[in-house]
Write a protein that binds this DNA or RNA. Structure first.
Lengths: 196, 196
DNA sequence: CGGTAAACATACGGACGAGTATGGATCGCG
DNA sequence: CGCGATCCATACTCGTCCGTATGTTTACCG
């Protein structure tokens, strides 16, 4: 019945609560973050929780900010390490397409946007990512105004895909179909990346 | 304090409750649909509600199905009336871009996707719309597999745009910028629609 | 080993909202 | 008019979950 990966930690820290909250958010949404339920899941009671946090909102806030900090980061630096700027975007697409866990959390937060606390966090994260896409498109040779619109379009396609597939279970796609879809995206959204 | 547009209706029907629930969903999300709050908004009490509906879930279900029925419909038929199939997609984009109210409801339902009742409804609606896009792309001359992927990409871009703009308030776009964005979408996603 | 503070348990208060019970008002119709 | 069906009000129960109050254990340190 012990869901946690750390089997028998006798004492808990605030970070443990934040991680557990993040897992719960990713699996069941923000609304499922209840202190007593979380306490049971961690093998303690409410008394522990209210020692580490002043309120439930404080926990959610801390968990979201924790996610905001430790998200992305490695992907962006890896992509920026690619020497040829024209190769960065297709590589970014393929690499992002073959991950899973980070998208789960992001998708969970997308469908929890009716909760006021997640809106600013998601706004900041999405804004940064779109700016990264923007510069990448500029470096790929697109003129500035087009690059901005293309970045918006690309990120919107990403967000929408998460919603349609993860949350709605559409369009019930297979693995090969998904690869074909990614290549179609690359061919459509990235300028002059088609070999001859 | 009377939010309703129908000022003083002495007796209410089930449809009145469903419409009010839909408005509330569009403005504050599914979580805000509380029977006592709705009753106050309609100038009655709970006693009225539980005569028309067996439970709160029943109301939400009815409101969602009502929206599913009376949504789209006119747009699709108008687009299908255009004789030249190659002109349908750009016209669809521009026409959809200049509406507002239907997108509000759809966006509100998007950010209420953690609620299990809205998932199947949104899945059905999105599926139908993507199939419509698929045939439109086929009629525009795209080969079948590409048309399907392009339809997915297009609708994903639409869904993501709603999330980023309506819900997250990104990217804080002006009216002219928006028009430019729409034209950029048309030029990018629709084959051979660029003049010359 | 003794004591202090961090970490946790237990028990309670209170708000909020769904659903029920039952009586009262209002409409339609013979 | 009067009577049954429809529509609504009032008052209550019940479950859930946040937060508090206070007692208890465990770790750490001189």
């Amino acid at each position: 019945m012990n869901v946690s990966s750390k089997p028998e930690r006798t004492r808990l820290s605030a970070e443990d609560w934040e991680d557990a909250a993040l897992r719960l958010i990713a699996e069941q949404g923000v609304g499922a973050v209840a202190v007593e339920a979380l306490a049971r899941q961690l093998g303690v009671t409410k008394g522990s929780f209210y020692w580490h946090f002043r309120t439930r909102e404080a926990l959610i806030q801390a968990a979201l900010e924790r996610w905001e900090q430790y998200g992305e980061r490695e992907v962006i630096s890896q992509i920026e390490a690619i020497s040829d700027p024209r190769e960065r975007l297709p590589e970014l697409f393929r690499r992002v397409a073959h991950e899973l866990q980070p998208h789960r959390v992001y998708a969970a937060l997308l469908k929890a946007l009716d909760h006021p606390q997640v809106v600013p966090v998601m706004a900041r994260v999405s804004q940064r990512r779109m700016e990264f896409l923007n510069t990448a498109y500029c470096q790929a040779g697109l003129p500035a105004p087009e690059a901005l619109n293309r970045a918006r379009l690309t990120y919107a396609a990403y967000v929408g895909f998460l919603q349609l597939n993860f949350t709605l279970g559409l369009p019930r796609i297979s693995h090969d179909e998904f690869d074909a879809y990614v290549e179609h995206m690359i061919a459509t959204l990235i300028p002059a990346s088609q070999p001859v």
